[in-house]
Design a protein around this nucleic acid. Structure first.
Length: 677
RNA sequence: GCCGACGUAGCUCAGCUGGUAGAGCAACUGAUUCGUAAUCAGUAGGUCACCGGUUCAAUUCCGGUCGUCGGCUCCA
């Protein structure tokens, strides 16, 4: 690198020689003033550096926010950063997705500025951008009220109108720490201590009179935060630990235009419209009863029929794939849960014991011990393996009172659970088969996008896991091997394993892009050892089998909830609780309605006939509101011709056709589990 | 469990600063017999989540309990 000149290469391949200390803004301006105005930040990649792409940071988000990145990696910098080395430069404009995170982070600073102006006694936590906006954590004796939020938003508008420059400044670490300590800024003290090295300079951002410990980058000035909204207020534990004091977390979101902001809220409304709790009530699918208790699901007839179809499909598919069906009790002696290890590491998730005669019983939180007892009931040879036991098992887990959420988080649920007992040599093919099965399930039910995670243990937290290093490393290794051999992209998440072994979790993306954990395939070497499971091998010796736990719907309740939202309640024909609504035009067509109903039912359809003394339009409307796939309307003409007039959901009146033709078409759609109508 | 908000007819919601409640839809009854998203009229329906307190008087104010919602934590 020369002393006075550095060379900056641009995305179009042009290379510019500029004086040392030139800023990205100056370069942008020299290209075009318009570009300079549209730019938000710059990405620089020092030349000569290994050019590895930015990856998901494995550090904590906080660390990612504050710590210095390696000098060779591409990084986002302020437009006002003086460039000091040869580098590739990209100007990030408002159109680039990275820019959104930057403006949201800047919006968090604007919010903190407003909060301190209004409530100077407040202590600052941290304020990162999130996927959908940003938040800032504050500590204050008196909680904020919704009125405070309104005031904060108004004050933010002032801060933005003042058009304060975001300036990066540096200060010796020890001086910064001393100031924070003097002011009682315990959270900032923590962050500086944790994320910076002794003796270093730490970075701050200043806008107007507000200064915050921050790594940046930021938009050039507060006026660039053009569309911002404070959304809600929630508690959050300091450092995520419930033993710590609770902070006030204020959420908001920001965009570069009012239009984008409005679209964001329109999307949220769309999500709210699809909320399974709302649709569950509107479509009369399920309920939760206060008298019975929270987190316990009542499946109403219309929901129960969908569940029946799901279960039938799954049981048939299990049998096709070499599983055997079993049933096990809901309560079992406490001793069983001692052997399994549940009372040791899982007790806090279990319902409290009940006394019966002279022993203690426990409601089951998992199905595995039951299946193990079936396995153990008779001697097994290698010829019996793999033994695949499947059950729709109702399990009960204690969830803390604030955590329940409709069907998605409950205290009693049904797992489509199976346990595969196999030889160590069979594990990998069994796991691979489970993954294939899981993909088949998701595709059948209409989900085409999903993500796979390998949930591994946290070796620093052994108290939460059974078994030692060797077994864990072996198990994790074999799961990885299967994923790699199948060419499946996955992400490893430490600390997410079950207490008895690592697992492959399949998270699926619903229609609104939200991620839900459903299917899980888990490796277990612990329970076979605890229950002293055996099989006699080809060599005549006794061996210990390994177990694969797997649930593909995961929880039938949760899967159903996601399914409702995925289809916004408009289920495909094969799943729809009422597939066909019959609408006789006048009372004199009631007999024809009966005849149609009988024929359609005989053909295997779920049919409802509306013979109320109502106008045809009212009947159509009612069926349409229930998202009935087909509404068959008929009067004199159809009656005479043995036909029906077909009204298809989403398409409207399709005209008249012979009943037999309609039946043939609909039967085919059901048989193929089609999502089309 | 914690922080904040909320809880009025089956559903969606009104009900100003305390004087024991109202609408629309749904339900029921009657009239109407109708060609692709709401026919008209009438009737009935609520210990204002529950318990306690303040008050002459509480749906309204206060406290507690239960539940719901948004987060935190946790999790299928």
């Amino acid at each position: 690198m020369s002393q006075n000149q550095i060379s900056i290469s641009l995305p179009d391949g042009a290379v510019r020689q500029v004086p040392y200390g030139t800023t990205p803004f100056e370069i942008a301006h020299s290209i075009s003033p318009r570009l300079a105005a549209a730019s938000v930040v710059a990405r620089i990649t020092p030349v000569g550096a290994a050019s590895h792409a930015l990856t998901d940071n494995e550090d904590s988000p906080e660390a990612a926010m504050y710590s210095a990145v390696s000098a060779s990696a591409p990084r986002l910098v302020d437009l006002s950063t003086p460039l000091s080395e040869d580098a590739k430069l990209e100007l990030i404009t408002e159109k680039d997705p990275e820019a959104l995170k930057v403006v949201r982070h800047s919006a968090a600073h604007v919010m903190a500025t407003a909060v301190l102006e209004l409530y100077p006694e407040t202590k600052l936590g941290h304020g990162p951008a999130t996927d959908s906006g940003f938040f800032y954590d504050f500590y204050r004796e008196k909680p904020f009220t919704p009125e405070d939020l309104t005031a904060i938003e108004a004050k933010m508008a002032e801060v933005i109108a003042r058009d304060e420059k975001f300036e990066r400044i540096h200060e010796p670490r020890e001086q910064a720490l001393a100031e924070f300590e003097k002011d009682g800024d315990f959270m900032k003290t923590h962050f500086v201590t944790k994320f910076t090295e002794p003796g270093s300079e730490v970075s701050f951002y200043k806008n107007g009179h507000f200064t915050d410990f921050c790594r940046g980058p930021h938009v050039p000035s507060t006026a660039r935060v053009k569309a911002v909204k404070v959304t809600n207020l929630a508690g959050a534990y300091w450092l995520g630990d419930e033993k710590n004091p609770q902070l006030q977390r204020i959420y908001g979101t920001a965009f570069f235009s009012k239009k984008d902001l409005d679209e964001h809220f329109a999307r949220l409304e769309e999500a709210a419209r699809r909320d399974h709790r709302l649709l569950g009530k509107q479509l009369d699918l399920f309920s939760i009863q206060e008298l019975a208790g929270p987190g316990l699901i009542f499946w109403h007839p219309k929901g129960a029929i969908i569940r029946k179809i799901m279960e039938d499909w799954m049981r048939d598919e299990c049998l096709r794939r070499g599983y055997q069906l079993v049933y096990t009790p809901h309560v079992m002696r406490a001793g069983l849960w001692e052997v399994s290890g549940h009372t040791g590491v899982y007790a806090k998730n279990m319902f409290t014991p009940m006394e019966l005669d002279d022993s203690e019983y426990r409601l089951k939180p998992m199905n595995c011990p039951g299946h193990i007892l079936i396995y153990k009931d008779s001697p097994k040879s290698y010829r019996d393996l793999p033994a695949r036991y499947a059950e729709f098992g109702n399990v009960y887990r204690y969830e803390r009172s604030g955590t329940m959420q409709g069907l998605l988080r409950v205290r009693g649920f049904t797992q489509d659970d199976a346990h595969i007992f196999c030889t160590p040599g069979q594990v990998e093919s069994e796991v691979a088969a489970c993954i294939d099965f899981a993909e088949a399930v998701l595709k059948t039910f209409g989900f085409n996008e999903f993500k796979i995670e390998l949930s591994s243990w946290d070796p620093n937290d052994r108290a939460h896991y059974l078994g030692g290093d060797d077994n864990w490393n072996l198990a994790i290794g074999s799961l990885e091997k299967v994923l790699k051999e199948k060419g499946i992209a996955y992400k490893t998440i430490p600390g997410e394993a079950a207490f008895y072994g690592p697992k492959i979790d399949i998270k699926l993306v619903d229609a609104l892009g939200r991620l839900w954990q459903l299917s899980t395939v888990q490796f277990d070497f612990n329970l076979p050892a605890r229950f002293e499971l055996e099989y006699v091998g080809e060599d005549g010796e006794r061996h210990q089998p390994v177990m694969v736990h797997r649930a593909l719907f995961g929880s039938v309740e949760r899967f159903f909830g996601v399914l409702i939202e995925h289809y916004a309640g408009a289920f495909p024909l094969w799943l729809a609780p009422v597939q066909i609504g019959l609408v006789p035009i006048a009372e004199r067509h009631a007999a024809y309605a009966e005849k149609l109903e009988a024929e359609l039912k005989a053909a295997g359809f779920r049919v409802e006939s509306d013979v109320r003394n109502e106008k045809m339009n009212a009947k159509i409307r009612d069926f349409a509101n229930l998202k009935t796939p087909y509404i068959l309307v008929f009067g004199d003409k159809e009656q005479e011709a043995g036909a029906v007039s077909v009204r298809t959901r989403g398409k409207g009146d399709q005209g008249s056709m012979p009943l037999a033709d309609f039946i043939a078409k609909a039967k085919n759609l059901v048989a193929t589990q089609s999502t089309e109508l």
